[in-house]
Simulated scan of single mutants.
Amino acid sequence: MNGDPREAGEEAGRRSAALVVEEALGFLYPAALRAAAAVGVADHLADGPLGVAELARLTGTREQNLYRLLRLLATRGLFEEDDRGRFRLTPAGDSLRSDAPVSARAAVLMLTDRTMWLPSGEMTRCLETGSSAFEDIFGVPFFEHFARDDKTAAVFHAGMDSMSEAENVPIAAGYTFPEAATLVDVGGGYGGFLLAALRTGPRLRGILYDHAHVLAGHRLDVPELAGRWTTAEGDFFASVPAGDVYLLKRILHDWDDEQCVRILRNCRRAMAPGGRVLVVDAVLPRGNEPHQGKALDLMMMASLVGRERTEADFARLFHASGLRLAGVVPTPTVLSIVEGAAAEDT
Rank of each mutant, 00 (worst) to 15 (best):
M1S: 15
L19D: 13
G26K: 07
A31G: 09
A32H: 06
L33I: 02
A36H: 00
G40M: 03
G40L: 01
L50Y: 00
L58Q: 04
T61H: 06
R62G: 07
N65V: 07
L66M: 07
R71M: 13
R71L: 15
A74W: 00
R76Q: 11
F79I: 01
E80C: 10
R88I: 01
L89W: 01
L96F: 00
V102W: 00
V102A: 08
A104Y: 08
M110H: 11
D113P: 02
R114A: 09
L118R: 06
S131P: 05
E135Q: 13
D136W: 14
F138I: 10
G139W: 11
R148E: 12
T152Q: 09
A153C: 12
M160I: 10
V169G: 04
A172Q: 02
A173Y: 02
E179K: 12
L183D: 02
V186I: 13
G189T: 11
F193H: 09
A197R: 01
R199C: 09
P202K: 09
V214G: 00
G217D: 10
H218N: 15
V222I: 15
T231D: 03
V240R: 00
V245H: 03
R250K: 08
D256Q: 10
L264E: 02
N266F: 05
R269I: 12
L278F: 05
L284Q: 09
P285G: 04
E289L: 12
P290Y: 07
H291W: 08
G293P: 08
L298H: 09
M299T: 12
A302T: 11
E311G: 08
G322Y: 06
R324Y: 08
G327H: 06
V329N: 03
P330T: 11
T331I: 04
L335Y: 14
V338Y: 02
A341V: 14
D345M: 10
